[in-house]
Write a protein that binds this DNA or RNA. Structure first.
Lengths: 329, 329
DNA sequence: CTTAAATGTGTAAACGGTTACATATCGGTT
DNA sequence: AACCGATATGTAACCGTTTACACATTTAAG
């Protein structure tokens, strides 16, 4: 391993001077700068970030904690974070929490131990006090929070839009699939839908679900049609659940969207590939990741931030599990 | 920040002794061990990995380089790697290369600068000499290599199986979609299929494609049916491309699998959710990730390894874009 | 021409751990 | 009682950087 000392020796200056040219810090004569750069090139020297990090008590690393990269909503988020962080020269220390408080804490610890400059967390459990005594900035992603910086989509509004659209398109007996109680965004969606539906004169049911795994979703889909066979509209808690409902409905020979309309949530990439393609409420996952990264970088750089909370808009994606709206009213 | 010195002071011993109890190293009296542990608990001390890493010239970090986490094949791989690494106490430094040699080199550099103990790379460009002078172990994932440890699925065999199955099920005019030339696994699949088809007396065409992006795939799908309208069997280079072909075929009103059979590659999670669900050659992505992680850990620990190359088997997943095989021969 | 400020460079002390080496005590064997 | 290995602990060097401080030289101002 070639160190700063080797460079110093080769260029005939002290390590301090080498350090100064590398960091464009303090005074250094142009001639010596050139000599040093030449030595750097010749020796293919690149500074040891670990040593740097130790002295400065700051690395160029940020921690990214996601519930599960295998859930198709998260790769987009992660990519947004990564692309943006890369620009600022930051690297990603990555972990999956499985929404498990212990795992989460474990990761948080190792993030700290590795001197990360900041953390982006998209986890949703109540173990908020895991974050209480952190000395470094955290931004929450896909998760509302009034006391921390956070970036999220307008879930409640999404729920409202979904309900409005499905009603407008003629569903009369709607079932809302309420997502897991501990996942805040799922609750927001539910509240939005509830708000609209309860103010209408439409019959509706609420079914609670406890995970976002496809295998579980298949069971609830079956249960849904067993319990409420005359449902003609489903507001699903996300696209995975919507997909399971779609499958079960097709299996039962229901005609979609004629007899049954379905609206998902997220607009995961595969939703447009389903048949019929899934109407859904789109969250701009990639942009959310980018926003979170930008916000964190600003905080790290101690820039003034106007808004600690960044709420991104949500849009209805009108595909083929909903009917075309009757423009004659 | 509480350091080892604080713990030493609180427990009335030297830092060396504290270090010894923390690492269960050398002799330490049971009574002092208890005193130290008490101080550790009271101060909530946890050692600074950066300092440790600097002295030992070894961190608990491994670098993971993927082409693009947004491609649905990779989250599974990543999760396999992460789960396995987590067990050994290793953390993941993560990057997307976009198959771009410059980005790849950039990440490799920062991995090194951060003292990672090993690297897992799933990239496919020819910039192999990026890895030539690395002083730390690398294992390649989803990529064959005779000179480096690597974990991959048997792509050639997969190509053979796909060709055999589609022929056995009665396709007579087959089009092979050959994946990007620089992606080795795609070429292996192609070679396997080619081998079987050229030994048969079946008509077939080969169409070259240059990426795995869905938007591009849609174009090739259109081109495919424009150029070879009487194709009755498609061997796609992966599930994304197969999905695009499936979509285009449905749009053209083709009956699947009656008029047209399609076989994909990878068995990405969404493939079972398509309609009709996609027959495909399954690569055990999660297991591949785990295997790669296990192999890397063994190399790090200097354990004897029997096989530098780990080839995992590939299986045909018989869904609904292929006909049922005629058991009467 | 004198002097202060600006420029240029080196020495050594941090950063927070680990460990080689030195030293001291303990327990068991002859 | 003398001796030796095992046990127990402390001191200080080291890992590769950055930077405070000291010092020397150049430049600009009066």
């Amino acid at each position: 391993m070639v160190t700063i000392r080797d460079v110093a020796k080769k260029s005939g200056v002290s390590v301090a001077t080498v350090s100064r040219v590398l960091n464009a810090n303090g005074y250094v004569h142009e001639d010596t700068r050139k000599k040093v750069m030449a030595a750097v090139a010749e020796l293919k020297y690149s500074p040891n970030e670990v040593a740097r990090s130790l002295y400065k008590k700051k690395s160029k690393l940020v921690g990214l904690l996601l519930p599960d990269i295998t859930n198709p909503f998260f790769p987009q988020l992660a990519r947004g974070v990564e692309d943006e962080m890369q620009k600022g020269g930051y690297r990603i220390l990555f972990g999956n929490s499985d929404e498990n408080a212990e795992k989460e804490l474990d990761y948080l610890n190792t993030f700290i131990q590795n001197n990360v400059v900041g953390i982006i967390s998209a986890t949703n459990n109540k173990a908020k006090n895991n974050y209480k005594n952190l000395s470094i900035p955290v931004v929450f992603l896909d998760r509302t929070s009034s006391d921390y910086p956070s970036v999220y989509a307008d879930g409640k509004e999404g729920g409202r839009i979904a309900a409005q659209e499905i009603v407008e398109r003629g569903s009369k007996r709607i079932t809302i699939l309420k997502g897991p109680a501990h996942i805040q965004p799922a609750q927001d969606r539910f509240q939005g839908a509830l708000e609209v539906l309860s103010q209408s004169n439409i019959d509706f049911h609420v079914m609670s679900t406890t995970s976002f795994a496809f295998e579980d979703a298949e069971k609830w889909a079956k249960e849904l049609f067993a319990t409420y066979p005359d449902t003609d509209g489903v507001l699903a808690s996300n696209d995975i659940v919507a997909t399971a409902v779609l499958h079960e409905a097709l299996r039962l020979g229901k005609s979609i969207p004629k007899e049954l309309q379905i609206i998902g949530f997220d607009d995961v990439p595969q939703s447009s590939l389903l048949f019929p393609s899934l109407s859904t409420i789109r969250q701009p996952a990639y942009e959310m990741g980018k926003e979170a990264a930008q916000l964190l970088v600003k905080i790290i750089n101690q820039e003034k931030i106007q808004q600690q909370q960044v709420q991104l808009p949500v849009t209805f994606i009108d595909r083929n599990t909903t009917r075309k709206v009757d423009t004659n009213g």
